[in-house]
Each structure stands twice: as C-alpha cells, then as structure tokens.
Amino acid sequence: MLRILGKVRHLGVISESLEPDDEAALTQIGAQLQARVGERFGGSLAIRQVDAGSCNGCELEIHALNNPYYGIERFGVHFVASPRHADMLLVTGPVSRHMEAALRRTYEATPSPKLVIAVGECGACGGEFGISYASCGAVANVIPVDAVIPGCPPTPLALLHGILQAIGRRATR
C-alpha cells in the first residue's frame, strides 16, 4: 500500500504534462469541450461506442481517451454501456453486413435527439475495405451520420476535436 501511495505521490497529476504543442491543443480543446458539454448536455455527454466492423485500431485510440493523459471524463464526457443512456453514438469500421442489423438496432435504441459520429477512414468512406458482399462501407450507408472523424485511426486529439465539432454543429441546426 505504501508503495502505491508513494508511486501516486511521486508521479503527481500527469493529465496536463503533454508535449508543448499537444498540451496547448488539449487544454484549448478540452476547455471548449467542457463549455459546450456544459451548455448543451447539462454538464455530461454520454457516448455509446459501437464497433460495426472495425479492425480494432480505432478502438485502441478511443480507449486512449480514458488514459490519464487525455482523461476525457474531466470534460464531462463519459462512455456508457447502453445506447439507451447515450446522447451520442461513436461508430467505427466499415459496417460489416453481419453488424448491419445490430447497428440499426443500436441506433433505434438511442433516444432522440441523438448525434452520430462515424470514426476513422472506414467509418467515413469504407477505407481499405470499401463495399463488398461482406461490407456496407461507410456508416452513413446504414444510419444517418452527423459528423465524421477521419484518420486511420484518428489520434486521440483528433477524436476530441471531432467530438467537439460535432456538438458545436448540433447547436447551429
């Protein structure tokens, strides 16, 4: 136990100790994100992530949002277990035909108003997999999409940025 406390004390808070340019970007994006989440989602934005066929690369970066560097929860953004609790769906992958029905059902189970973000090259346009007997390609081919975050995979900062833009756009609609 002492070792744990020692480690914690020794390390301190690292959530801001990013590389200089990253740090500025993250602080800025984070502040904006927090403000918008505060305004439009009562201080808390609930995201349901759906892997609709990804290679799992995008998932790794979405995971990274929860590591202590990005710590997305401090901006009021958190990932929830059920689409019924979600304000936003973060969908990765080309939509495999085998996930098509599950994705539609998840979309239907999400209460309106809802936001859908297609993540990654695959989510945006089908990526390396395109459209085939097994793949529907872009997420927008299956459910309505509000925004895309390109990248293969998008970096955690690109994800933060994309989420921010999407909730900004919502307000102007």
């Binding site: 892997d51 066929g53 990804s54 992958g93 080309p94 495999s96 035909r97 085998h98 996930m99 599950a102 997999f129 395109g130 085939s132 007997y133 097994a134 793949s135």
Partner: peptide, 11 residues
C-alpha cells in the same frame, strides 16, 4: 463470432 467479417480474403 463472424460479426466483423469484412471479406478480407476475397478483397
């Protein structure tokens, strides 16, 4: 399993 079958061998 098979939900994320993307036809990799075919494409």
């Amino acid at each position: 399993l098979g939900y994320v079958h993307k036809g990799i061998e075919k494409i």
